[in-house]
């Protein structure tokens, strides 16, 4: 890719990540959630991989790391489902607009699910780009 694209992506990449994280964190209050946010982060990574090559993108996160992290996040999700009564008791029972710490365990599910989606889609994109 030429220099214009590279410079643009270098500038825009942190903001894409930030917006993705915002979408994941506010999934229970605004439109969005774990899946759209995770997809945004992966779109940023894909842009880097397209502009600078796969090696540069793999310096951010490796495929094996993504796989392990995805599994650990799945473990956390199962943990939340198994002990849901406990998590429901420590967080607010109903949603409150503009308040991040509300709506039961949805916030935790969103965060872990968001990381999981990011890792899974990263794996898919990297594997298909390697072929």
């Amino acid at each position: 890719m030429d220099v214009i694209v590279r410079t643009m992506i270098k500038g825009i990449f942190p903001f894409i990540l930030l917006f993705g994280v915002y979408t994941i964190m506010h999934g229970h209050l605004t439109p969005g959630g774990s899946f759209p946010g995770g997809t945004m982060i992966v779109v940023g990574l894909t842009l880097v991989a397209l502009a600078f090559g796969l090696k540069k993108a793999e310096r951010i996160i490796k495929e094996e790391t993504a796989h392990i992290l995805e599994g650990i996040m799945a473990f956390f999700l199962i943990f939340i489902v198994l002990f849901e009564t406990f998590f429901r008791s420590i967080l607010a029972p109903t949603g409150m607009i503009f308040n991040l710490w509300s709506a039961q365990q949805i916030l935790l599910l969103n965060i872990f699910g968001g990381i999981m989606v990011t890792m899974a889609l990263t794996m898919i994109v990297f594997l298909l780009m390697k072929e």
Binding site: H67, I68, G71, A74, F75, I78, V81, L82
Partner: peptide
Amino acid sequence: ITIAISVLFLAAFLVLVL
């Protein structure tokens, strides 16, 4: 019943890693 499903999910992940 979630226990049975959770065990299967965990096994699906662990068998690839270990």
